[in-house]
Nucleic acid binder design. Structure first.
Length: 319
RNA sequence: GGGGGAAUACCCAAGUGGCCAAAGGGGGCAGACUGUAAAUCUGUUGUCACCGACUUCGGUGGUUCAAAUCCACCUUCCCCCA
């Protein structure tokens, strides 16, 4: 219990660690050619550069598992690989949809598996790299999402019902229909409660049943899942530096340009950290300094959530 | 120099005699997560010997059975007049 946190790293010592990890991963990958290398970790842990290193060493390609890099035009704020990097190493699952199109884990899982299968056929090494817990989970756990896509009409019906009769009623339904799910779902979690009912009305099945089915197939891919975590205090200082760099690199201009093209700020990618704070600043909600400060805080909170997400997994090779 | 206002927990901010260890928000800490996931949701946040006790609401001293709340003085800050 006394060594709960990772040891403190400096930029130098962490970089050294990453360099040696690149070698290790490369060797492990060579010894297990039927496995897909996966590199995950919280923001600013250095996973992208590590993935680049490994990809270069193995002449592989990178598959991004990042829910924001999916969107075209959102580059600086999502720390997307640069053009040069992308020229050097092919990247997949980046820039695959326009900001006004929706995306989802299910789509990601399907799209990513297509890429994985295709590259396997070509005999090309793939390095999966990203920090979106849900996306990583889908891949590692071989979750197959059945075709219960969101049904906008049904969803708005249920939402209206929640507003009318109250969320509590919908919640009590869940308690009755699916006590297991009720146990892990909060009675205030309107988003998940609505989705439960959407699924139920669509399929006649409960969340538990659907979740079970989605895990019933054997995972078609085997992974070597590496996980980077330099520790909280390293991350915190790295994040601050990174945020200021992003702003300097033109985050505000990028956001303005995107807003000019897509004025609807309720689009999903505009809720990405960095973008929403810049929008607030542009709206005059707060000062430039406060904008920067908020981005730093929100990014740190995000990193914390990522660490929480991955902490319980015991299948990760932790670096 | 004169007049007015403000000082509340890590920060912002409610609270104007008892129901106040003190609303709410932020931040911190912890957790959850299966088609929005960089999203969303939850718990916790004075101290301790923690179902009870103790110490808090700028400071000191009063009034009162009882004060963050009333009075006096002091300190600091802001505003207006000069």
């Amino acid at each position: 219990m006394f060594m709960k946190d990772s040891p403190e790293y400096t930029d130098q010592s962490w970089q050294t660690k990453l360099d040696s990890s690149c070698q290790e991963i490369m060797n492990t990958a060579r010894a297990n050619p039927e496995h897909v290398v996966l590199i995950s970790g919280p923001t600013a842990s250095g996973k992208s550069s590590l993935a680049l290193c490994v990809a270069q060493a193995l002449n592989g390609v990178i598959l991004s598992a990042d829910s924001m890099q999916i969107y075209r035009g959102f580059d600086i704020g999502t720390a997307k690989a640069s053009h040069e990097e992308q020229r050097l190493i092919s990247h997949f699952m980046i820039d695959i949809v326009d900001p006004d199109q929706g995306y989802s884990v299910a789509k990601f899982a399907a799209d990513a598996r297509n890429v994985l299968a295709e590259k396997a056929n070509e005999g090309r090494t793939v390095i999966v790299c990203g920090g979106t817990g849900q996306y990583i989970q889908a891949l590692l756990d071989g979750i197959v999402y059945a075709s219960h896509a969101k049904d906008a009409k049904l969803r708005s019906e249920i939402t209206a019902q929640a507003e009318g009769e109250g969320l509590t009623k919908l919640w009590q339904e869940i308690v009755r229909l699916d006590p297991d799910t009720a146990k892990i779902m909060e009675p205030t979690d309107s988003r998940r409660i609505i989705r439960f009912h959407e699924l139920y009305r669509l399929t006649g099945k409960t969340r538990s049943e659907i979740d079970l089915e989605s895990r019933s197939q054997k995972n078609q891919f085997k992974f070597l899942p590496f996980y980077l975590d330099p520790g909280k205090s390293y991350l915190n200082s790295k994040i601050a530096a990174r945020v200021f760099q992003m702003i300097e690199d033109g985050l505000i201009d990028e956001t303005s340009a995107l807003l000019a093209k897509y004025p609807d700020t309720s689009l999903q990618p505009f809720y990405g950290i960095g973008y929403r704070e810049v929008i607030g600043y542009l709206n005059g909600d707060y000062s430039y300094e406060e904008m920067a400060e908020r981005i730093v805080i929100h990014t740190r909170q995000y990193a914390k959530r990522q660490r929480t997400w991955f902490r319980p997994r015991n299948d990760l090779i932790r670096i």
